[in-house]
Design a protein around this nucleic acid. Sequence first.
DNA 1: CACTTGACCTGTCCGC
DNA 2: TGCGGACAGGTCAAGT
Length: 306
Amino acid sequence: MPELPEVETIRIGLSKLLPGYKVTKVKHDWPKSFPNSPADVKAFLIGANIKQVKRRAKVLIIELDSSYTLLIHLKMTGQLVFRGKNEKFGAGHPSQSLIGKLPDKSTRVTFNLEKVVIGPTYHKAELFFNDQRKFGWVRLMPTVEVPNIDFFKSVGPEPLEASFTAIDFRTRLLKRSNTSIKAALLDQTVIAGVGNIYADESLWGAKIHPATVVKYISTVKINKLFQELQFVLRLSIEKGGSTNKNYVDAEGKKGSYMSFARVFRREGQACPRCGTVIIKTRVAGRGTHLCPHCQKQPRTAKWLQL
DNA sequence: CACTTGACCTGTCCGC
DNA sequence: TGCGGACAGGTCAAGT
């Protein structure tokens, strides 16, 4: 589900909501969603205060004052929704909310939270980790160990970091020089945070066919792709991400990038640049949307080498 | 080693 | 309306 812009939108939302809350209780029913032992949960999560919420690639990082950290990956259908106690539909307008009463049948983990407001008064809240398909996970681990997990050791740079340049982008893509540009963009060890939506959107922007073999793409085109990728990621963060189906932000609200999407899930519609009908095909094992006029399939396309 | 495919799950949609 | 199959935002392990 969530790619970089969606996870970043949730991070921004949770950063305003969570710091200062103490975790008072945790309930989880699907062991794969949260495999830590009850003893560790009791010792390092219950009673801990939330310090800050960070993000790396598509992983949310919730730092606690117990020297432990919660890592959360939403995978395809994960949601992380904050609700003040007795609050029915989140902080936004009910029409923007995709979900109603919580917990619901997709809720895998419930965190009970409390915050001291004035004197003996406590604000109570809950944080729900919902995940229809059960691919996502929550992990509790020592904060100092976080950079050492396999995923963080191998994941590529953040594409919106100021230090990340078009030259870095090209150098890293060339690590996968014999595969399709779409597979290379989706490879998290090349660049962090790109998924199916923004791969298709940025390739349309750069007029590159997704099946084109990386080593045959000109430097000019790679530079263009770099700009387009940053553009779509930034635009989507500004729009609160893409709600294709399940995605909601920390308050349960949908994102609006899908109404700005140029090709993703727009098969059968006119290309906004040339009017040709957008098609859907399969590249790198994923549903892939493109304009067959703007993104001509070159002889160097992956499936023509068979 | 580089690269591709299948598995992990539930739910929905589409064709017969 | 029922049933089977394909498919859905991601990542691993296992395969070629």
